[in-house]
Simulated scan of single mutants.
Amino acid sequence: MTTTSPAKPTITITITYCIGCNWMLRAAWMGQELLATFQEQLGAVSLVPGEVGGIFEISLDDELIWERKRDGGFPDVKDLKTRVRDRINPQQDLGHIDRAKSGE
């Protein structure tokens, strides 16, 4: 008997952080939040030690969705989850995050 398993997701989030600024824990926390919310859609979340100089970038596959200097600091986790959701599954309900936006 042959069984087929569902296709493994291939979407990858990469978080590159400044090693000199000690932003590894912030990067790991954001990665954990994304994995918890999108566990069925993501294939991997990678943490990449970056060069000293204040780098903090988040990419979804090859698309840069957050850059600390360009976007004015660190993303609020709600904004980050919304950006990821809008790219991988726009119909997905983010629970209380979406209800807070609509005023419910």
Rank of each mutant, 00 (worst) to 15 (best):
S46L: 14
P90N: 13
W23Q: 10
L34T: 06
G31K: 05
G103H: 03
V45Q: 07
I58F: 03
E63C: 00
D86E: 13
M24C: 08
M24P: 01
Q41T: 03
L35D: 09
H96A: 15
E51A: 12
R26M: 02
M24I: 08
M30Y: 12
M30C: 07
T2D: 09
E51T: 14
A7Y: 02
V45A: 08
R26P: 02
T12S: 03
Y17M: 07
L35I: 05
E33A: 15
D86I: 02
I65D: 00
V77P: 03
D76Y: 00
I88F: 09
K81L: 15
P90W: 14
Q91S: 12
L42P: 06
V45I: 11
S102A: 05
A28L: 13
T82K: 15
Y17D: 05
R83C: 03
I88K: 14
Q41D: 11
R68P: 04
T12L: 04
H96I: 08
V45D: 06
G73C: 13
M30V: 01
A27P: 06
T16F: 01
I65P: 02
I11W: 04
D79F: 00
R68T: 07
T14I: 07
W66G: 07
P6D: 09
D93T: 11
Q91E: 15
D76C: 00
Q92G: 03
P6E: 09
Y17H: 12
A100G: 00
E57L: 01
S59C: 13
L94A: 04
E57H: 05
M1W: 01
I97M: 08
I58E: 02
Q32G: 10
F56L: 09
D98R: 02
S5L: 15
A100K: 14
R83V: 01
L34K: 05
I19C: 09
R70L: 14
I88Q: 10
M30K: 12
